[in-house]
Design a protein around this nucleic acid. Structure first.
Lengths: 351, 351
DNA sequence: GGTGTTTCTAAAAACATTTTCATATTATGC
DNA sequence: GCATAATATGAAAATGTTTTTAGAAACACC
């Protein structure tokens, strides 16, 4: 009942030629006569021959698979990135092996090892929030395995390409916009500080205040750990009980911002009149919540494509055994400030 | 500079034993003396030996990789399913190769072939909207490759396990709830009709109307193709211009429902007083939109875990070369009606 | 001391492919 | 007609494992 999987040897036997000939015929090698090529092709089609990638991988020392390590899939931004990765990888003839680090360093290490064991041709990684040590990545680089980090990049790791988002500028634009709108007591909910992304957003917030001669108030800065809606809700509640209440909240993520909005609305505060709220990431929910949430759009899909293109370029360079070492890149993608009702007091063009 | 990847033979040479001994020592085979086992283990640890999964796969005819084909990753429900898949697969020692069919039958076929070529041990698939022909899956089953379909399952394919969601009941509950709330002119926006899921939701809608002695009005039934917010917006616009306007809209998906809400609000209609709106899937946005959207929660994460457990059971059964053929399962998961403000006229317990 | 058993290790085959090297046949040039 | 070149194919090695089979050494039993 169970059909056997056809091998080169099967085809060879059937045609009375050697497996070597079949192999070459199937890739249209000019050494093989046209007639033979045709015969082989026809039989292969007829029997639905599919090359065994595992055997190819072993022989060629190249699996045509790239490994992807993502902190968390159920996340609009990351799933967009994955989508970009898959699109580029697919058209370049690569398969994708996916791992989810769950924001845990230990899991991330295991994933790196598993991918290495699977002999992927390269790794795309966005670091877990917990990750503050890069030995696992160093080791892979020592083996010559190409690595590209994106979004939560690994600046400490030498000799690798990175694709980042200009989070500093994105966050700076938010604060500038709030100031232009007349808000002065601007609070910030930042994320876990290992990732460079949260660091940059926090730094931009502080710099923008300073650049506009606003004093920094440490009571207006809170850090969340899980980056959830609840945390936004809790922090906003705290601020409401405090005097003076902030007149704007800039949260590290839309979800957190929306948590804050819920608390503010419950307390009877008017957004954006009494207090503004701004998020980050432009999740689908941001445009749909009421009032629509001002946020910073990040080009996730493009980021995935770009990171993958860099990785595959490096892989190809490596396999071409050129003399010159591969030149690594650091790409920075621009964000887009999406001004919506939640932060607009003055009449302004709403996008 | 580039470190060589360590092989069994390297260890064997270094220790002056054969590769066979090293292989057995590493898996604690009792044939090997304790001292030898220890020596081998120590050297392996010291040199960071990692078995080459590709070579193992070739030799053992088992890759420890499962293939997953999903129509679209950037989708709250599907990313939840993937998350469940990855969690179960990880703890069972399997890697995941991911493909995105983009709702295209052609791409789905390519993906199936690519996964077969990669010699995955099994395939998890949710069909593309376009898919109305199952030859590509039949072929894989003929090769004895285990397949489990989930959500948009493939009822035409024999001898395979399925995990579905009770969409019929979920949709029936929606319509019943609307009727209980006093709505009578209930419209429905259904999805593409190839997937069994949309079919079931439509059928439940029709049956529920009939069971409650409401007449079916074909003007109140529209089908969307892309399942986008725009489509919901456009359909709602059309209904607004029509007399009598429906007093409830049940959309195949939250996104479509929200599109409809936007159109209704623009037209000055009050939700839920003038008209109710209900979605499906319980995206994050549903609880956040105003008024909060009544919807049907689907257990995506559980579905992923369950489907993966069935697949891996079947794989294990196959490799245990038992006499009795594997007994396939069809599992049906229950939905949960999330009653929110968008559909509640009468006082009711809001979840 | 020969036979049989136990304990440990090695050799070799197998997995499906690619590629180097070799070889046989035919064609070309003088 | 002979040397050389071109053409087409095959044999064999190689990729890194696992596993079957075999075999050597040590030991027990009569």
């Amino acid at each position: 009942m169970k059909a056997k999987q056809i091998t080169l040897a099967d085809l060879a036997k059937e045609l009375g030629v050697s497996p070597a000939t079949v192999s070459r015929a199937l890739k249209n090698h000019p050494d093989i006569s046209i007639q033979t090529r045709k015969k082989v092709q026809e039989l292969a089609d007829k029997l639905h021959y599919r090359p065994n990638s595992i055997a190819q991988g072993l022989r060629k020392q190249e699996s045509k698979v790239i490994g992807v390590i993502i902190p968390e899939i159920v996340h609009h931004f990351f799933s967009s990135v994955i989508s970009g990765i898959m699109e580029y990888a697919y058209q370049a003839g690569y398969r994708v092996m996916l791992c989810q680090s769950m924001e845990s360093l230990a899991k991330e290490k295991e994933d790196v090892e598993a991918l290495f064991s699977s002999r992927v041709d390269g790794i795309l990684i966005s670091l877990a929030n917990e990750t503050n040590n890069y030995a696992h990545l160093e080791e892979m680089r020592n083996y010559g395995l190409p690595i590209v980090s994106f979004d939560k990049v690994c600046q400490k790791l030498e000799n690798h390409s990175m694709v980042m988002i200009d989070d500093y500028e994105g966050a700076y634009n938010v604060v500038t916009h709030l100031i232009e709108q007349g808000y002065r007591r601007i609070a910030h909910i930042h994320g876990p500080l290992n990732p460079i992304t949260s660091q940059n957003r926090l730094k931009a917030y502080l710099d923008a205040l300073k650049d506009h001669d606003l004093s920094q108030n440490d009571d207006y800065i809170m850090g969340c750990k899980q980056v959830t809606q609840e945390e936004g809700y809790i922090f906003a509640k705290k601020w409401i009980q405090q005097q003076p209440i902030p007149d704007a909240i800039f949260a590290v993520t839309d979800l957190v911002a929306i948590g804050a909005m819920v608390a503010l609305k419950e307390a009877g505060l008017k957004i954006p009149d009494d207090i503004a709220v701004v998020g980050y990431s432009d999740w689908a929910m941001a445009s749909v919540v009421e009032p629509a949430l001002t946020t910073v759009a990040q080009p996730g899909f493009e980021m995935g494509k770009l990171a993958t293109s860099l990785l595959i370029d490096e892989i190809k360079h490596l396999h071409s055994d050129q003399e010159i070492p591969y030149q690594h890149h650091t790409e920075v993608l621009k964000t887009q400030l999406k001004i919506r009702k939640s932060s607009v007091r003055k009449p302004i063009l709403v996008s």
